[in-house]
Amino acid sequence: MRTTLRASLAASPLPRLESHLLWGQVLGVSRAWLIAHDQDPVSPDALAAYQALEARRVAGEPMAYILGRREFWGHDFQVTPAVLIPRPETECLVECALQSIAAVDSPRVLDLGTGSGAVAVSIALERPDAQVRATDVSPDALAVAQMNARRLGAKLLFSQGNWYDSQLGSRRYHLIASNPPYIDAQDPHLGQGDVRFEPALALTDGADGLDALRCIVRGAPGHLVPGGALCVEHGWDQAALVRGLFQQTGFDAVASLRDLAGIERITWGRWPA
């Protein structure tokens, strides 16, 4: 006798929502369909496909990699192990970016270390008049970002390179945004949870977690128009240090913004006009 969806769900060690998401992936149906048809029998092939996905999740692999997608800023972004999984707190970076160019017509925007393209694509979709360039040192990450831009209908330019070493030329930008690697290389969290499966290059600079931020902040004046803004994401305990970097570099109106958990997650400032 074939097993049913209900029996499979009852036997699963996963939370019900995760099991539903995996069954939805296998069968190509919605969660509502699964609930309405939980007494339907499932084929041996479908059950084997589900169990393979279930085993990956039990081993700790992030759902985003198993499903191949993650929602961000109201859009479905495809993700692979080549890129960081977009997180809700990074939506604060998009908010900061959009606010900083709200009064600028046809702004030029630079997203450094774009990963999946979540930030750059979200900005481009919100501001179709913007000229957005996204960079990443990883060709595999750029391929994912380009795929997401095509799927979501966003017009972007892409460059491969490390921070400002990305064939940027002499053009200056109204906004530079970045969610760089900012975790200290000695942080024990790198060996825990989802981050065990994410690319180390996108998580840590291999040092104290501030190397990339120092490079981005100190290099920004050479790539911003007068009055241009810099917005960066950083770690939960780095806001004061990052504000110091901005101020030492000469930025005005430096401030840190809190995410939904109340953590100072984003720091921004304007280059003097």
Rank of each mutant, 00 (worst) to 15 (best):
R87V: 07
R150K: 14
T4F: 13
A82P: 05
A207N: 13
L241E: 15
V109H: 05
D40Y: 05
G244V: 05
A154T: 03
A134E: 09
R214K: 09
R16K: 14
R108C: 08
G191P: 04
A59W: 02
D136A: 12
I66Y: 01
E18Y: 06
G227I: 07
A124W: 13
L22G: 07
G115K: 04
R151I: 14
C215V: 15
L260S: 02
L67A: 04
A185D: 12
S159R: 11
A229E: 11
L125N: 11
P139K: 05
H20Q: 15
P86N: 13
V79D: 07
Q192V: 08
D259H: 00
L67R: 03
A120C: 13
V132R: 04
P139A: 11
C96S: 15
P221A: 07
S100M: 08
E95A: 06
D40L: 14
R2K: 12
A130F: 02
V217R: 00
A64D: 10
D111L: 10
V217W: 03
P188Y: 01
A202K: 03
P62Q: 08
A102V: 07
G74R: 08
P221I: 02
L67Y: 03
T135G: 13
Y182P: 04
E233H: 07
A255G: 06
Q248E: 15
I35K: 14
D76W: 08
W236H: 13
M63P: 09
I66G: 06
H20I: 05
E61R: 01
Q146P: 00
P188S: 11
V254Q: 04
H223T: 00
E264R: 03
S8K: 12
D252I: 02
G191Q: 11
W236P: 00
A200P: 04
R196N: 01
M63Y: 07
G169E: 14
E89R: 13
E61N: 02
R214A: 00
L190I: 05
L190S: 09
G60L: 03
G228H: 01
Y164V: 09
A273H: 14
Y164Q: 07
D136L: 09
W163G: 03
A124R: 11
F158V: 01
I101L: 01
R70D: 04
T80V: 08
V242N: 12
E89S: 06
R151K: 15
V225C: 12
A145N: 02
R243N: 07
L190W: 10
P13W: 02
A154W: 01
R31C: 08
D208T: 10
N148D: 02
Y182N: 02
A202T: 01
G250Q: 12
A200S: 13
V225S: 06
G250N: 12
V217D: 02
R133H: 09
D187R: 10
P180S: 11
V26H: 11
V79K: 11
R265D: 03
L224H: 09
V83F: 04
L34K: 09
E126G: 00
S106K: 14
V42P: 00
E198G: 06
Q39T: 14
A7L: 14
A124H: 10
A154P: 05
R196I: 07
V109M: 05
T4P: 09
H189C: 11
G117H: 00
G193D: 09
R270A: 04
